[in-house]
Simulated scan of single mutants.
Amino acid sequence: MNAVLKQKKAVFGLVIVALLCLTALLAPVLAPNDPAARVGRPHQPPSTEHVLGTTKMGRDVFAQFVWGARSSLAVGFATGLAITALGTLLGLFGGYFGGRTDNALDLLTNAVLVIPNIPLLILLASFAGKVGPVAIMTIIALTSWPWGARMTRSQTLALRNREFVVAARMIGEPSWRVVFVEILPNLLPLIALNFVGSVIYAIVAQTTLEYLGFGDPLNVSWGTMLYNAQNSSAIIVGAWWDIATPCIGIMLVGLGLSLVNFTFDEIANPQLRSGPALTRWLQLSNRRKRLSRSGS
């Protein structure tokens, strides 16, 4: 964690995500009224009374934004956790035990991996009809774990024959302890990378499904806000605030998590840390130029 906090971009990303999560937690305080209640005129522009304006139905956009953050962030983080846990477990077991176990899990992973995720999500959602947040979480989690499983499996294959793992097996350590105590801690940067990427994907996938009309219209989220804005032709009538507000929320979550994701990527792959290396190279190059000038 110290390595993450030393990176300015990671700290900036964590601050963005923390502020959005705090906004979602404080929704009853920031917007105590019902977000579905009519409180103003249709498509009223931002003002002191309604800081982010109103929708076509006269609903306060700020109230919908903070309450929608609860649903979107909860689905994103819960689904990301489920995707990461499922992919990590399958990758660990397949990579460590090998043989038929690995072949079966690898076949299952490849079968799900070759299917385009978004069309599969739309197909499953169309069969289910209007789906709530829990159903959306389940659909996304069951179709989005293969990437993390492949990544975890490849690293487990590289670690299972390392000296400390072989030594643990030779002294009689049970397989579960070798997997979870010896191998798993060495995969934490990779797991964190997988989790952050899964959260971003889950929020985008949920927004996509709800924007296309497969979500529950009674559940307030950033996706249903976009769906309602589209149905009310917000862009055509000039009510830019109706569609810009949820878009900015999704953009900020993606920006914050991406900055954290870049840091985890650099921890997992030190070769990507080009910033310090480039600085040292420039300093060395300038020093050589000064020496050559003084010698001439």
Rank of each mutant, 00 (worst) to 15 (best):
A10N: 03
I16A: 13
V17E: 01
C21F: 10
L25E: 00
L26A: 12
P28T: 06
P32T: 11
P32F: 13
E49F: 03
T55K: 02
R59V: 00
D60A: 01
Q64T: 04
F65M: 13
G68M: 04
G68I: 06
R70I: 04
S71R: 05
G76E: 00
G76A: 14
L81C: 13
I83D: 06
T84V: 13
R100G: 14
D102S: 13
A104L: 15
A104S: 12
D106T: 14
L113I: 05
V114K: 10
P116R: 08
I122N: 01
A125Y: 00
A135Y: 00
I140T: 10
A141N: 07
L142C: 05
G148R: 05
R153V: 06
S154C: 03
Q155H: 15
G172Y: 08
S175M: 05
S175V: 14
W176F: 08
R177M: 11
V178Q: 12
E182G: 10
N186L: 02
G197F: 11
V199L: 12
G213F: 08
G213D: 11
S221N: 02
W222Q: 04
T224M: 13
T224Y: 01
M225W: 00
A239H: 09
G249C: 13
L255E: 03
S258N: 15
A268Q: 13
Q271P: 00
A277S: 15
T279D: 15
W281A: 12
L284T: 08
R293F: 07
G295Q: 12
